[in-house]
């Protein structure tokens, strides 16, 4: 069960991040904002909240053993610093992703380049935080692997 939660967490976070990049590009290139952009914004919001629930659930039910391994291994700071930053900084991205459908809808109503740039900026913030989370997650995975007996990279 634990492995499926990590998989769900990583995949929904990764797909949400890629969609945020795509939405930013569409908003910056197009002359008007329509229903597809709104659907994309709602999809990103949904994916990020699924990522949060899966991540919290896994952290509370499946992370104890990997945490003990990391702390006893050669990179204990992978939990104390990297994982702590990851689990808390994600909340910033989660809050900004919650704004996306509203700012995209407002960009659609106002119909100006400035309004589309506002929505694109929110997408870029979400994408940058999402990409950072993927990188930090990969780092935590590496620390777990290096902490295992007879570790190989």
């Amino acid at each position: 069960m634990s492995e499926y939660l990590v998989f769900l967490h990583a995949v929904t976070g990764g797909v949400g991040t890629l969609l945020a990049v795509a939405l930013a590009a569409v908003l910056l290139r197009s002359r008007d904002t329509g229903r597809p952009e709104s659907v994309l914004a709602w999809t990103i919001l949904t994916l990020f909240w699924i990522t949060a629930f899966a991540g919290i659930w896994w952290y509370l039910t499946g992370y104890n053993e990997p945490k003990a391994l990391i702390k006893a291994g050669p990179m204990p700071w992978a939990h104390n610093v990297v994982m702590e930053i990851k689990e808390h900084a994600f909340l910033v991205g989660l809050m900004v992703s919650s704004v996306l459908p509203t700012v995209v809808g407002e960009a659609r109503r106002l119909g100006s380049p400035q309004a589309r740039r506002m929505a694109a900026l929110a997408c870029v913030v979400v994408a940058l935080i999402g990409l950072s989370m993927e990188a930090l997650g990969a780092f935590v995975s590496l620390a777990i692997r290096l902490s295992m007996p007879e570790a190989t990279v």
């Binding site: 910033v92 407002e106 960009a107 400035q114 929110a122 913030v125 935080i129």
Partner: peptide
């Protein structure tokens, strides 16, 4: 304005 709103989101983040 949209610009101020964008800056506000960026500053908060």
């Amino acid at each position: 304005s949209p610009c101020r709103a964008g800056m506000l989101l960026l500053a908060g983040s």
